[in-house]
Every structure is written in structure tokens, then in C-alpha cells.
């Protein structure tokens, strides 16, 4: 099949960048989207042009590295599918395909379609963990966990940290990512001790990174390759408000009679 690609080209962080058009004439419908990109790069290399830089690694939909907005949708037109799991047969012969990087001021473009997602790591650093050391731990069956709750926690934990939620959100908000991790840990008994402090520190870091605000569009959920639910955003909102308004700030302060 033949396709026309319109690809965002940007040589470095400081470059202004722009869309560039390429023709590919010999694409098999059996190719994955990234294999099509490999073909483009082979063609560019042969023509003495610079190949298109794009992030990818596992190519089986779990590492979260691939990150392209394809025809206006994060990871392209198939629901619950990462770019690497998208196939050319999902496009028509002669298709015009627009490929852009994640757009967010918190995800600056490094080159072409490659963006810097270290903001996500910093959100995790702010509290996306259960404080722990390696060593002997209590017997896990001594703390039973309702299977439904374990499954719900896993629904949240299945986030691959690709950033599609940010890319898809009309506001560039990172609430789904932050909520998924905070909820995963907040749902489990092991994560209770730090539940409210975690909600606060993670949200504060998220704000600092310059993501937009959540407007309850649910576009993040619709374009998330793992279909993570906005229910977790509700939970984070609840935890965060409780942390900010209800949780005592001064548990051990002085008290007097009157």
C-alpha cells in the first residue's frame, strides 16, 4: 500500500520544528506501525536524510516507550492499543497519516517525536512508593486482601507510564497517571500509612511540573492504551481533599481547657 506521512521534524530542544511530508510506496498491511517507521527511516538513510527519531523499545505494548499522536489520537486510532501494537492494516491504502509528538510543556521535545518524560519519574519520586527497605518482611498472607481490591489495585497499577493521558487531554493534565499510582498504593493495606501524605506530595509535584488541570473530559481514559479508569481520578480527588481539609496537620500540638 501507499501512504503519505506528515511527520513532526525538530532537530533539537531549541529548534522550532515543523511538519514534513514523506511518501512511502511499498508498505505491507502486515507491518506494525513502527515497522512502517523503520521503513521510512531506511528510505531516509538511503536518501542521505536524517531518520526520524522516535522512542520505542519492547514493541509488545508494555514498556510505555512508544509515544506518537497519530491523526490526532494518542497511539493512533485503535482503542487500548499502543503505537507499537498498531498495524498498517488499520489504515487505508493512500491514507494521509499525521504523526506528532506528545504535546505538553512538561514533556519538552528532545528530537522529532522523542519527548522528555522525566516529569513522570519526579512525580513518582514525590511519593509514588511505599517506603521500604530490602530485607525480611511480614508473611504476606498475614494481611489478607480482598481479591476485588487486589484486582482494582492492579487495574490502576497496569499503567505503563507512556504519557498518552497527557497527550490526549485537551488540557494536558497528568491526573490519570498520578491518580493511577496513588490509587494503586492507596487501595492496598500496605499503602495506608502514607496514603494521604502521598496524595498531597504527588499532586504538588504534578502541579510543579506544569501539567494542565483536569476538566473531567475523560479523554485520558478513552485514549489510554491500558484503558485506565477515571474512577482513580475521583479517588485521588477524594484523597487529596481529605488530606488537605480533614487530615490533622498538628496531631501533637498543645491543648488547653476553657
Amino acid at each position: 500500500m501507499k501512504i503519505s506521512l506528515h511527520v513532526w521534524r525538530q532537530s533539537s530542544r531549541d529548534d522550532r520544528g515543523g511538519m514534513k511530508e514523506y511518501q512511502l510506496d511499498d508498505i505491507s498491511p502486515e507491518m506494525s506501525f513502527l515497522e512502517m517507521m523503520d521503513c521510512l527511516n531506511e528510505q531516509l538513510t538511503q536518501n542521505g536524510e536524517e531518520p526520524v527519531a522516535f522512542d520505542h523499545d519492547c514493541r509488545e505494548g508494555v514498556c510505555g516507550m512508544c509515544s506518537m499522536v497519530i491523526n490526532g489520537e494518542a497511539h493512533g486510532p485503535k482503542a487500548e492499543t499502543t503505537t507499537c501494537q498498531l498495524y498498517m492494516r488499520h489504515f487505508e491504502d493512500g491514507a494521509q497519516i499525521y504523526i506528532e509528538p506528545w504535546r505538553s510543556s512538561a514533556f519538552p521535545v528532545i528530537k522529532d517525536l522523542v519527548v522528555d518524560r522525566s516529569a513522570f519519574d519526579r512525580i513518582i519520586q514525590a511519593g509514588g512508593f511505599i517506603s521500604n527497605h530490602s530485607g525480611p518482611k511480614p508473611e504476606p498472607n498475614s494481611i489478607p486482601i480482598e481479591p476485588e481490591i487486589a484486582e482494582q489495585a492492579l487495574d490502576a497499577a497496569t499503567c505503563i507510564g507512556c504519557g498518552a493521558c497527557v497527550a490526549a487531554c485537551p488540557n494536558g493534565s497528568a491526573m490519570l497517571f498520578t491518580a493511577a499510582k496513588a490509587s494503586h498504593l492507596g487501595l492496598l493495606p500496605q499503602g495506608q500509612t502514607e496514603r494521604y501524605s502521598r496524595a498531597k506530595t504527588m499532586v504538588n509535584q504534578m502541579e510543579e511540573e506544569g501539567f494542565g488541570s483536569c476538566r473531567n473530559y475523560a479523554e485520558c481514559e478513552a485514549q489510554c492504551p491500558k484503558g485506565i479508569s477515571i474512577a482513580f481520578i475521583g479517588q485521588l480527588n477524594s484523597d487529596y481533599l481529605k488530606a488537605s481539609l480533614v487530615e490533622p496537620v498538628d496531631r501533637r500540638g498543645e491543648m488547653h481547657s476553657q
Partner: peptide
């Protein structure tokens, strides 16, 4: 920088 193409699924 806004997208050249943008499509909504749920909003």
C-alpha cells in the same frame, strides 16, 4: 504548541 490534527473520543 497545539496539534495539527486533534480528535476526541470521549470529551
Amino acid at each position: 504548541i497545539s496539534y495539527v490534527k486533534s480528535k476526541k473520543r470521549a470529551a
